[in-house]
Design a protein around this nucleic acid. Sequence first.
DNA 1: CTTTATTTTTAGTCTAACCTAAAAACTATT
DNA 2: AATAGTTTTTAGGTTAGACTAAAAATAAAG
Lengths: 223, 223
Amino acid sequence: MYNLYVMTYSEENYLKVIYHLSHNANKGVTTNAIANVMESKPSSVTDMVQKLADKELVIYKKYQGVELTDKGKFTALMIVRKHRLWEVFLLEKLNFSWDEVHDVAEQLEHIKSEKLTDKLDEFLDFPTEDPHGDPIPDRNGKIAKVDKKLLSEMGVGKKMICVGVKDSSPPFLQYLDKQQIALGSAIEIVGKEDFDMSLTLRLDNKEVTVSNKIAANLFVKTV
Amino acid sequence: MYNLYVMTYSEENYLKVIYHLSHNANKGVTTNAIANVMESKPSSVTDMVQKLADKELVIYKKYQGVELTDKGKFTALMIVRKHRLWEVFLLEKLNFSWDEVHDVAEQLEHIKSEKLTDKLDEFLDFPTEDPHGDPIPDRNGKIAKVDKKLLSEMGVGKKMICVGVKDSSPPFLQYLDKQQIALGSAIEIVGKEDFDMSLTLRLDNKEVTVSNKIAANLFVKTV
DNA sequence: CTTTATTTTTAGTCTAACCTAAAAACTATT
DNA sequence: AATAGTTTTTAGGTTAGACTAAAAATAAAG
């Protein structure tokens, strides 16, 4: 597809972060936003972004933020692909739990071997989603667009299934485990409290109440 | 066992090389030897070796070469453990060939997660040897001592099985594949040519002749 | 539309890991 | 045991990727 020339660990991380940020923001991604996510300083980001622009992985105009080029986007997608495939591997084959896969996948995503990635994909039987419900790009960088809404945006009476999480931090994932909410769980909203926007849900004939904050981090799809 | 504090990629590579070199040489490993293997310069090695000594991973006396401390040896063994486990994974689960596993394992050996290593070990059913016949250290750093001899040192009439290779470069491994020599293959020496020390072997009732150079890179065990 | 506040970039440092060239220490040979 | 040759270390330099502090550009507010 594209010739992915050899990138450093750090360059790859920047590209990945820019990719994720440009999904939410539709304009250029700011250096500040990148620095926040990477827990670094805006000045460091400026440096790196200029380097990536020299290599034609991003388009960068001073003070205007950055956007990925096609080449940059493809490169980012290959990193996302590896990350999500490894997550599936860790969960399905090595029995890691939902909240443990991310940190290790964060390292594994930098392993450079197209053959390894493709063989892993095959070994896992070509999964289309990772354990958090996010789609896995194929070897050509094609990625399914999932239509998902936040649970907090849905009204009383709606029947849905859980398709992903917005926040994937261990505490949140562990909370979901405790409530027995998983990918594919059927959810019905039986009540909404106007005062604090908390929701009462029916799950497998069991009722639970969740705060608005929880609902605002859970992606669902109506059925 | 020991507290493996966080090491850089480069530090880990040095430790690994020192570990391997100190198996052959019984004295201190020289900076030159390390530089040769790492394809770097002796002065660079001196730098790093001093750093490793500060961290008590090696004992280093100027002009005398280096030795691993117990802590350094354990750290090296954990890297070797990961390398060899990943090799088994690549070969057995992803169907890589004998000669393809090394380069990828070279990257995977640096992934830092004790849990991953141990789960992988379990997933592979606690293998004791890697695809080249080298023993895999357990989680406590215990490693089996294999008694193996070079095929070139054995006499006519001996019956053996192949237990490993000295050289594990792709061309050599591919040669072995072509001759259908694999780990566990039964080998009997039916003739030896005094002129060039080439050997005639019986393999599954098939006879092949191999040069001394081949025989000097194949480890065997008498049965 | 000017002033203030915020964001972003520039300039100059720092560290890890390498390098080259030169100096110092070892080894070997007479 | 002195000298020639080799190995190893030191000294000083380079690059990538981070940082701080200050300057410049943009955005917000009166």
